[in-house]
Computed example of a mutant assay.
Amino acid sequence: MMTLFLIGIGCGDPGQLTRAAIDAINAADLVLIPRKGTAKTDLADLRRTICADVLTNNSTHIVEFDLPVRDAAQADYRKGVDDWHDAVAAVWSRTIADHLGGDGKVALLIWGDPSLYDSSLRIARRLDPLPEIEVVPGITSIQALCAAHTLPLNDIGEPFLVTTGRRLREGGWPQGVDTVVVMLDGGTAFQSLDPHGLHIWWGAYLGMADQIILAGALAEMGPRIVAARQDARERHGWIMDSYILKRRP
């Protein structure tokens, strides 16, 4: 029987790793490290650093593989994601079979937490053969963003909504909430909103050495975030950011 550990490793700071995560890494026979192209070598480097720091089991093998790229130009968004998940699952299955066979424990180090805006659980359930799946939770980018800004996420007795940049851009401000968390924004969807009465708390590369945070009234801070985001993407070749919007009287 094969067991697959999906281990949340936090948002970039190796210090966010939990003791449960360290135990799971050392329990694995095989640790898989995905490579996402030359522009995102930082993500693989962090996983390598974590393994070098905490792995004490000399029998654990570390294997790297190239992650398939999603066709972002495909017109049907959900079909494109579904096809991409199939391709990733096939690579996982093939890599595990090549290096472990059908029996043992495999670990994948998941950015943030495997349960929030991450597809690893959906992909894992497509593996052939289907493994037993165990999730080790990690610090999410939402937690890291709130901590960086010393910001309580919810107001007293009030709900909040977590959504994507695409949904915010297409649907506007969600009904019934005054606090919105935006993740997976490939651009700057907040620019599609009327900034009057809105405040933003933004962060990029959260938990990493290059972390950037900005906060303030959206009308004033929005253009500064757009410029900072563009500059950071040009310097690093990639960007991973999220933000919180609050509607104030």
Rank of each mutant, 00 (worst) to 15 (best):
Q230P: 00
K36P: 00
H61V: 13
Q211G: 05
A219E: 15
L108T: 04
L67H: 15
L30D: 04
R169D: 08
I33T: 10
R48C: 13
G165P: 10
L145D: 08
R122P: 01
W84I: 02
I33M: 02
D66T: 13
R35V: 11
E170W: 00
A148M: 08
P34M: 10
V182Q: 07
S115Y: 03
T188V: 10
L130A: 15
D241F: 06
I33A: 06
R70V: 13
V135K: 08
Q230C: 02
D23R: 15
W238G: 00
P223N: 12
G112K: 08
A204K: 01
A52Q: 14
S242R: 01
V31M: 10
D71K: 08
G80V: 05
E132V: 13
R229F: 04
D98F: 03
S115A: 14
L109V: 12
D13K: 05
G197M: 08
G80F: 12
A144I: 09
V54S: 01
Q191N: 11
V177M: 07
G37T: 03
L30P: 01
D29V: 12
V54R: 08
V91G: 00
P159G: 04
E64G: 12
V181G: 10
E134P: 01
I139D: 01
W173Q: 09
K79V: 14
Q191S: 14
G165S: 04
A148F: 04
F65R: 07
G157N: 14
E64M: 01
N26G: 13
T49G: 05
I7S: 09
R229Q: 14
S115H: 05
A209N: 14
T140G: 02
D231Y: 03
L4C: 10
C51T: 13
K79L: 15
G165I: 07
L43Y: 12
R35E: 15
G15R: 15
L193F: 11
A204Y: 01
W173T: 06
F160D: 02
G176D: 11
